[in-house]
Structure formats: structure tokens, C-alpha cells
Amino acid sequence: MNAMQKNTITQSQKLMIFVLTMSLYGLATLFTELIPKFQVGLVEFSIEYFLFIPLTLGMLFDPLSAALGAATGELVFSEIMLGQFGGLGELEKFLTVTIGVYIAGRLVKDPKNRVMVGIAAITGTAAQLLMGTIVDIAKVQFAVEDFEAVAGLPESVFATEGFAFLNDLLFSGIFFCLLPTLYLVPKLYGKIEPLLGMAPRTAQSAVAGLNPKSVVLCLIGFLCAVTAEMAATAGMSLIDWEAEWAESGTAMAMGMVAAAAVAVIAILVIKKNAERKVA
């Protein structure tokens, strides 16, 4: 039986971490959707992140499971449950959260080392925010036609997004990611692991450390996020809808209307008949 006592994490333990992070972070993001955002002048003090939850769990347990759990939790609880699902754009959030948490989790070798935990927490948050900012800027650029031509728009977008990044990092980042993580990690270390039937992470455990492979993985993930966003917005040029129907003109549209109307009537009739048969 000794073969089973290795330090590696079993599949089920990963599932446990996934379920735990998903539930908690999901619940937390549900609140962030509801807490009013308020602005003082230009600065938006949005309580954006309960990111400290997956950060903490990612540092204590398997980073990838915690990262995926957090991203899924946000997707399911706050996007799907509240009907705030933004389509392909959600992929971006999913991936940036996953990468941010994953990086932070991998950076920590020993959860008892507070300096390490602090650096990892702020790095993970910064990575997540930065990726989000880049994608955001690109998004507006593609969504608004003649982006450059609109007076004041490009500047305002760069200014607000850049400002939001710094503000989020310094405000949300420190108050809602760094400090709570520093408070929670040492408190939970050694207490939460036995509840899940695991051994606490030590400097010797295999999960820690950022190796080239994980960096490449993160980069690929980020590229996917950007591509997803671009696909959601830049698709305009690929499928040139307007041109298509402008040329074919009214006749084609009339045809579509007629066809659809016939379909509606046909289905209604068939449905009636079917119902009569059943009755």
C-alpha cells in the first residue's frame, strides 16, 4: 500500500480542491456583482476582487485545481446563475483568473514564508489585472468603428483603462488581495489540510516553482484569451454582414420573411394536428 502514500496529489483530492475553491469564490463573486460600485471623481472604487480566496487556496493546495475551480466558480455562480453571461468574452476572464491564480500558487514554495506569500499574491493579481487591461483596451478598439476618428475616444480609453489598472492594483490589489492573503495563509496553514485529508505543503513538495513549461502554458493561455476576445469583436471584418444584405437588397429580405412566415404557419398547423391526435 505504500505506493499510494506518495506526496503526489490524487485525482480525488484535486476534485476536492476544485469543489472547495469553486464554491467559495463563486459565492464571493456573486456578492461583488451586487455590491454597488461607487465613483469618486474618475476613480472607480469597485470592490472587484475576492481574488484572495483562490490565491490563498492556490498557495496552500494544488495551484491548478484551485485556479480552475475559481474560474469555473465565477463563471457558474456570477455569470450563468445571474444570467450575466457575456458570451465568448467570458473566456477571457476565465483564462486570466486561471493564469493569475496559477502563477501565484506556483510561486509559493513554503506557505509559512510571509514575504514569499506577499510577493506571490501581488504578482498573481497584477498578472490577472494586466491581462484584463490589455484585452479591455483591444476590445473597445475593435467594437467601436472608426475608433481613431472619434474625437477624444482613444485617449479616454487609454486613460481610463490605464488608470483602472493602477487603481485596481493599488486599491483592490492591496486591500482585497494582498492583505487578506497574508492574513489567511498562515492562519489556515496546517488547519485546513487535515480537513481535506491531505498533508500540508512544505518546501519539499513538488508543486511549487515556476518552470519554463508552466510559463509557456500561461502564455498560451493568455494568447487564447486575447484571441477569444478578438474573435468576439474583430469578427466584423470576417463576416461582413452589412455588405451582404445591402447588395442583395430588399428582395432577398422579403424572401426571408416569406420563408420564415411559411415555416411558422406550417409548424403551427403540424402542432395542432399532433395535439389533436394525442387527445
Partner: peptide, 24 residues
């Protein structure tokens, strides 16, 4: 709200364990 996640994390951890065992 922040601090209340400390007890919440531990309590949820307890639950997750049963859940995952039951799932198995």
C-alpha cells in the same frame, strides 16, 4: 466580510470532503 471567509473556508472544506467522497 473578509474575515468571515476564514471560518467559511474551513467549514466548506469539511463539506467538500464528504461531497467528494460521496461522489466517488
Amino acid at each position: 466580510i473578509m474575515e468571515s471567509f476564514y471560518p467559511l473556508m474551513l467549514n466548506t472544506a469539511k463539506r467538500s470532503r464528504t461531497t467528494v467522497e460521496a461522489l466517488e
